[in-house]
Design a binder for these strands. Structure first.
Lengths: 241, 241
DNA sequence: GCCGATTTGTCCGTATGTATC
DNA sequence: CGATACATACGGACAAATCGG
């Protein structure tokens, strides 16, 4: 899929690191050596390394080299700083995903809804409530708003599978950018019902709200994901610049 | 402080965007124009733009231009994807920070503590419990573990102010990389006491655990931050690559 | 402490490809 | 179709940090 050279090198190195071909804290081969190995220019190689840095896989040290600091992440986890669909996360964790569509509606947003979602007043959207299961355990209750004009022809059947797959492979839309806010909120009756939670146990859950943009620069999706607190686990890697 | 040209350009553009010199969704001047303005090479300018992209400030569109998608973030918020100290967050939000040191101890880690923190067994560390107030409201209860050998001379007085300031300006250490995990946990008695929480209200809180590396590649800090749920608000921007 | 070799960091100029208008 | 805009890639130059002799 990725035809850019730097991406091929990036993926190759990433895979090698994940497969323990370099010990933790060990130095990778020098730029010079890698340039010869991949037969590319220095800029191209450095770009691939830069991607590994932002992923938190390696750390570069001027005058010394590039150190492997990768640590495998646990099961049942989601990464942030990357855009990944529920199905992709499930696959990465080797678990079986299932999605149940609780509600499939078409809306014209009023003022209150517009303020809530970030879409303009009067925007035509699909509004979905979806429940995501992992190995038959309900984990996430999603409230999705998709701009109709950007996501034409969305159906309940598609929503039961992967909407992102539809966006990318059928509509050929490119997802570029997703801005997310994480908060903790009180459990509602709906949460309790569908996520099979007991207020006497946990009385709140993790909420991730996201605004997602496509390559046209239009914000086409607002989603609020309500996560079972005992399975919620988000990773992040921050780099000081 | 930043002497690299691309960083100067990056900061200048960032400031202009924050100060509304470009309307939301408006295109920035083209690369060609900006190159002439800043009198730099194309690579250098593109590097500055690339930083703005990962910050979620702009979006580049091949054949079209670079679009401003910056939205100011609300008060009392923390950003992820960036490394920022409590005092820096407070300053950015125009609030008054205060830190109370509840415990200042020196430990030699046993097996259980080593597994918990990620340090090796027998590591000599400073163990601190600190309570962070914003405008006199206790918001975050921190459990900090600092490797003694990497952070020599840490005192209670320093811990009451900014440890990061001490690390960077006195020890001249460079923080490079921080790996974080966000979870939701039940409130403990200690949380209840210091964060002035009532179990009948919220019975859980947001927990951010982080492993931080310096430029030597040594992990010198493990911190668990326990956040009051009603004020917890974390931002993230994800870019599909 | 100095020097030279190695390694990463920054910057430049140029060429070509691809998408948009 | 041509002009414009961003994307990828190359090769070269010098700077800065590190390490070993």
């Amino acid at each position: 899929m990725p035809k850019a050279i730097y991406q091929v090198i990036y993926r190759d190195l990433k895979e090698k690191i994940e497969n323990d071909e370099f010990a933790y804290q060990e130095l990778l081969p020098s730029e010079h050596q890698l340039i010869q190995k991949y037969k590319c220019s220095r800029n191209t190689l450095r770009r691939a390394i830069g991607c590994l840095v932002t992923d938190g896989y390696v750390q570069t040290m001027q005058g010394k080299g590039v150190r492997n600091i990768y640590r495998p992440i646990e099961q049942t986890s989601f990464t942030i700083g990357e855009i990944e669909s529920f199905r992709e996360s499930a696959a990465r964790n080797g678990l079986t995903p299932r999605t149940r569509v609780l509600l499939f509606a078409e809306l014209t947003l009023d003022e209150r809804q517009a303020a809530h979602t970030g879409f303009p007043v009067g925007a035509e959207v699909y509004y979905l409530q979806r429940l995501h299961y992992l190995d038959e355990l309900p984990l996430i209750l999603n409230h999705n708003y998709f701009l109709k004009e950007a996501v034409p022809g969305l159906t309940k059947e598609i929503a039961e599978n992967s909407i992102y797959d539809y966006l990318e492979n059928t509509l050929h839309m490119t997802i570029v950018n997703s801005r997310r806010v994480m908060t903790v909120e009180k459990i509602t009756e709906i949460d309790e019902k569908y996520l099979k939670l007991n207020v006497d146990d946990y009385n709140c859950l993790a909420v991730v709200s996201s605004h997602t943009y496509n390559s046209d620069g239009t914000m086409f999706e607002y989603t609020q994901s309500r996560h079972r607190p005992d399975y919620f686990r988000f990773y992040d890697n921050a780099v000081r610049r």
